[in-house]
Structure formats: structure tokens, C-alpha cells
Design a binder for these strands. Structure first.
Lengths: 275, 275
DNA sequence: CGATGTGAACTCATTCACAGCT
DNA sequence: AGCTGTGAATGAGTTCACATCG
């Protein structure tokens, strides 16, 4: 049964401070990939309208729930599930409400039901063939994950340019030359492309993937990919993650340094406080 | 037991360059009843207050800028830089404004200056020793990155439980047994721990890292780690990424179904098909 | 002029708090 | 009595638009 919710969010702003009209939107800005949705109101019919942030969490809930199912747990409350997923229960309930009402008041949720519903929403009832481009260290690791994280994402093709690798099976799949990408992607109906090449090659590989018809890309290369609007790109950026952690280490250090030391306003690291 | 934080945190308030008397009293606008702020633990103070989202982007800008510097570019406008980083210029300028005013009106930014300032803010002027736990496929790949993404993050220790691995050098560093983690982490002043173990071992490894004094963790294992408040956890979750992409594939498919080959729909909602 | 820097408006996301069902 | 589901309130993050200054 499809989601029967209404399109939800209207202009909830009850604040009278709302400005006049000004609907002159359509700014042709340099907007990059990321979001595809058409900004101007009029949501498509019974819009799927699940906030991106919620989608990410649904995937987490799904994993937790699968674990519970294996342990034979049948029912769980929002409180417990939220806890296991590392979020608070209000958020969890709101997230689940986006996909429908599958809980029982006074009781909780049936694990099986939730698993099924989340899988449906995430499109996991269908298999998504994946290809990995760039069979270096990381590519190897990814290919060897075999069936990729969880089932449902079979890796069916590997590409590289290194002649020594072509034909060599990695994780059971022989490596093809990148020049054959179009043919192979079509033949094996690849729907998701993973880029694990050195940064310099990433954009070109990306272009080839797109040309081959791939519309979803997971990018491990430390580059900002330019893609057409209709292509969805997610990136996993080690350097950025490390640097964010670094930022926190630094901030922690700052705090430690100045704590206890009176209200001195001296800029710790050079940020001049102008006035 | 606080679960790991995901995103957002930190109180904003007061830009470093705020003019005149900012920092007035408390919260702006009419506060409702006695709602005594509940600051994140002991943080606060003269918070550097850079939104988490901005921090992540600063890291991206930094990479783009470094590339430009190498190419000999001296100056760049917000428009150009934004473009290269895949964001719009307003966002970029706002992000940069969090770290100070280093641009020249009518001209743009000096690449070198920006690189320096971002590095300072991200705490990259200091080296952060990294350890990797779990030397399987992924751990190998990570260890072999050598100096980790970009310089500044030297991998100085590797851990595993497999007797066959202990002592074997990977990427130049011999693998230690996890039981020695406390000693080794202390000796090598590891400040960031990377978890690349199978899911089942992740929480325990995490606990050991924390016990050993590591306060920043990058987790590749598909589990929600439970850590004390003062520990910062970032996660890289392949399964979640794939599932988010899957969701988009599914949504795309839905849209396609209903727009083109959709069997006669005497539907009420005008199917708004743009372009 | 032209591009930065930034209050203010707006949009998206999270949390509160409670009505409503079991 | 207990727990879900959800409007409404709050807060975070993004975009607008323009004063400002090199």
C-alpha cells in the first residue's frame, strides 16, 4: 500500500511577519548536483516528501531493527529503538511518521513490519547493481565486501585502466577496462557507480559513468564532482572527516587552555576581535 | 550514556566580527517563560561558534584552494571559489565570514591567506597522530594511504587481534595487538582513532580507545557507537550511503512511472512535469 | 564599479507536549 | 496506563539583498 499521507507541510508559518509575495524565484544560480527537486511549490502529487536527513536515519533504524529481528525481538517501543539508534524518541517517531503509521499505541512497533516498510521506502526490495571504478587499495576493499554492505547491493562490475589488472578477478569479479564501461554498465544494468580512483581521474570517470547512464554515484575521491542535475552524488571524504575531527581536537585544546583563566578576551589563535 | 552525536551542536551567537555592542543580554526575541538555557554540557563560553555544517565545507574549500595555490592562482572571487567547491557564493561568503574578514571588496580573496586561515581554524597547524584498529581489507587500505588524506594526519599505530598480523608491517607500520592499545596510544600520542573492525567488535574497540584517552573517533563499522559526551564520533557508513542512493533510485523510478508510461490517470492533481 | 560581509528573511530540521488510540 | 502520532514551537542552516568599502 502506498503512502497515503497527504503532502504534509504547508506553509505553517503562522507568524504575521510573513512578507508579501515575491515569488520571483527560479534563480539560475550555479547550483550543483545535490538536490534535484523543483523548488517552486507544487509538490508532485502524493509527494514522497521525506526529509533527506530522515532518510539517512531510516537506514540506521533499519540496521538496528534487522539486528533485533535476528535476536528474535518482536516488538519495540520508540524509546528503546531510539536509544539503540542513537537518537531521541521524538525524532524517531517523527521519522517513522513520514513513512506511515505502523505502530500500535500503548505498545510499540512490530519489528518485522517496520523492517518491511523501511525497506520498501528505501527501495531495497529491488536489487541495485553496483560497479566500482578504480581498483586500488580502496577499490579492492570495496570489491571484497562482496554483496556490499548488507545484501541488496551486488557488485557486478569493476573497472580500472591498469593493464595488469584487466581480467584479474577481484572479489570474484574480473576487472574490465574503463573503456568498456558503457557496454558493461548497460549489460549488467548497473544503477550505482562507486568512484575509488585517484582524484585526478575522478571527474573523467564520473563523466563516463554519467554518459553510460548511471544516475547515482558514491564518490570516494577527494574532489568536488560536477554533474548534471539529475544525477545524485554522495561523497565519502576521508580528508574532510579527519579535518572535522581535527577542528574538534583544536577547539577542545582551546577550551582547556582558557578555562579557569579568567575572562581574558585575548584571541587564542589570532582571531582579531574587531569592534 | 550519550549516544554519538551526529550533526549540529554548538551554540552560535555572536559573530567574531560583530559590530558595536553585540553580546547584549541573553536570548533575542521574547523568551517564553522560564526556559533556562541548557547549554551543551560545559561548552559555551566565548564559543568559536562555527556551525558544524560550515566546518565541513571549510575543509572542502581548503582543498580547492590548495589546488589553486599549486596552480599559481593568487586571487579568487567568492563566485569562482564557490563554483569550484560546488556551493553558491552566498553560502561561501557566509562560511568564510565565520573565520574572519580576509577578503578585499571589489577584488576577492588571496588564496594563500585563505589557506592559512582555514588551516588555522581547522587545527591543521598541528599534527594529529592517527591509529587504525582492524587491519582487514579496509584497514589495509587506510593504513596504506600513508600520511592519510593530505598531510597532517600521520598514521602511527595499527591494531588487530589476529596473531598472524601482529608485528607485520602494513604501510610501514607494524601491527600491534589490541591489548597494547593503551600503552601504544599514550606513547605515540594518538589523538584520533579509526575503527575499521567488523561490527561486532566495534563497540568494544571503541570503549578501549576511549579508555586509552582517544577523544576523536572515525567509525567505519556499521554500528551506532555509545560513547561519553566528551568524545567526538564521526561515522562513515557505506550501507547507509548506498541506501540513500537506493532511495533516490526508487523515487526516480516512481516519478518516471507516473509521468510517462503511466496508464490513464484521470487524476485530479495536474501532473506538473517541468521540462 | 564590483565584490565582500552581513542583518534579516526564509526554509529545513529538531524538539516539545499532548490529544488520541489500544 | 502507556505509547504513538503529530501540530506547534523552537532552533539551525541557507539564501536574499544591500550597505559598504577598496
Amino acid at each position: 500500500m502506498a503512502a497515503q499521507r497527504d503532502e504534509g507541510d504547508e506553509v505553517v508559518t503562522g507568524t504575521p511577519t510573513a512578507p508579501g509575495a515575491d515569488r520571483a524565484d527560479g534563480a539560475p544560480g550555479a547550483d550543483t548536483a545535490e538536490h534535484v527537486e523543483e523548488p517552486t511549490a507544487l509538490t508532485r502529487e502524493r509527494a514522497r516528501a521525506i526529509p533527506e536527513a530522515a532518510v539517512a536515519r531510516l537506514a540506521v533504524y533499519l540496521r538496528v531493527l534487522s539486528g533485533l529481528a535476528e535476536q528474535g525481538v518482536n516488538t519495540i517501543s520508540s524509546e528503546e529503538l531510539a536509544n539503540a539508534a542513537g537518537v531521541n524518541s521524538a525524532k524517531l517517531r517523527k521519522d517513522l511518521s513520514y513513512i506511515g503509521s505502523y505502530g500500535t499505541r500503548g505498545v510499540g512497533y512490530e519489528v518485522e513490519v517496520l523492517v518491511g516498510q523501511i525497506e520498501r521506502i528505501l527501495g531495497l526490495t529491488r536489487k541495485h547493481s553496483v560497479c566500482v571504478v578504480g581498483i586500488g587499495n580502496l577499490g579492492h576493499a570495496l570489491a571484497n565486501y562482496g554483496g556490499f554492505p548488507g545484501r541488496g547491493f551486488p557488485v557486478t562490475a569493476l573497472f580500472d585502466v591498469d593493464p595488469d589488472l584487466i581480467g584479474v578477478p577481484v572479489g570474484g569479479i574480473p576487472v574490465d577496462h574503463i573503456d568498456d564501461i558503457s557496454r558493461v554498465v548497460a549489460e549488467r544494468e548497473v544503477s550505482i557507480g562507486v568512484i575509488a580512483t585517484p582524484p585526478k581521474a575522478a571527474q573523467e570517470v564520473c563523466d563516463r559513468l554519467v554518459a553510460a547512464g548511471v544516475q547515482c554515484i558514491l564518490n570516494f575521491a577527494p574532489v568536488v564532482l560536477q554533474v548534471p542535475d539529475y544525477v545524485e552524488v554522495r561523497k565519502v571524504d576521508l580528508a574532510v572527516e579527519m579535518q572535522i575531527l581535527s577542528f574538534h581536537v583544536a577547539r577542545r585544546a582551546d577550551e582547556a587552555t582558557e578555562s579557569g583563566g579568567g575572562p581574558d578576551l585575548s584571541d587564542v589563535d589570532g582571531v582579531v576581535i574587531r569592534r
